[in-house]
């Protein structure tokens, strides 16, 4: 599924290449243009992959890595793929940080009296369901679902971003959708 018309894609790539050339000459205003062009998508992707508590910090981390890495970018026409890969890396780093933090939190909570709360029944709003559904997926499945189904990145580009074969993207997408569908149906959503 490719939602971006080819002509628009070529135009974006041409604009990217020009902006990158200017950035390499030290023009920070061109970097501002790149930021403005890609910030919404990077932000959205980070939000779907991570928590929202440090979203601005994560966005800043992505664009700082982009600025520092620009001299190593060989194919300026592949900027978007490269940028989304950095985004994925930042999200992955954040996930690991959170995992170690949650381990510590879990150890602490085991020492405290537990309060039974059923969050799933408290919030049956669809947005919250989707958020929870995404959260219960494995990180690999969530990445593919978010990139392809929510951010409309073509499968081939997802494969390049994650450095996996297209067949693996299809397979992960299949399992991610199945898990999400099952989760929603169990929550009472009729699709």
């Amino acid at each position: 599924m490719s939602a971006v018309p080819d002509e628009a894609l070529k135009g974006d790539r041409s604009a990217d290449s020009y902006s990158i050339e200017q950035c390499l000459r030290g023009d920070r205003q061109s970097f501002r243009a790149l930021y403005q062009r890609y910030q919404p998508k990077v932000r959205s992707m980070l939000y779907q992959l991570c928590d929202s508590s440090s979203l601005d910090d994560l966005v800043q981390e992505v664009f700082l890595r982009v600025w520092k890495g620009l001299p190593q970018l060989r194919q300026t026409s592949q900027f978007a793929t490269w940028l989304y890969r950095i985004t994925w890396n930042v999200a992955n780093d954040r996930r690991r940080q959170l995992a170690s933090f949650k381990d510590r939190e879990r150890n602490l909570s085991q020492m405290l009296p537990s309060s039974p709360t059923d969050r799933l029944l408290d919030n049956l709003h669809y947005q919250d369901l989707v958020r929870r559904g995404l959260k219960q997926l494995s990180f690999e499945h969530r990445c593919v679902l978010v990139m392809h189904d929510l951010e409309e990145v073509p499968q081939k580009e997802v494969a390049e971003i994650l450095e996996i074969p297209v067949g693996t993207v299809k397979s992960r997408l299949f399992h991610a959708r199945a898990a999400m569908r099952q989760f929603l149906q169990q929550a009472g959503v009729q699709l």
Binding site: S52, Q127, L145, D149, L184, V189
Partner: peptide
């Protein structure tokens, strides 16, 4: 099935906090 699921997800995706 996939189209319905994708449509539902896009329609109800968590809204990103304002920048």
């Amino acid at each position: 099935d996939d189209d319905r699921l994708i449509e539902f997800l896009r329609q109800h995706r968590p809204s990103v906090p304002p920048v």
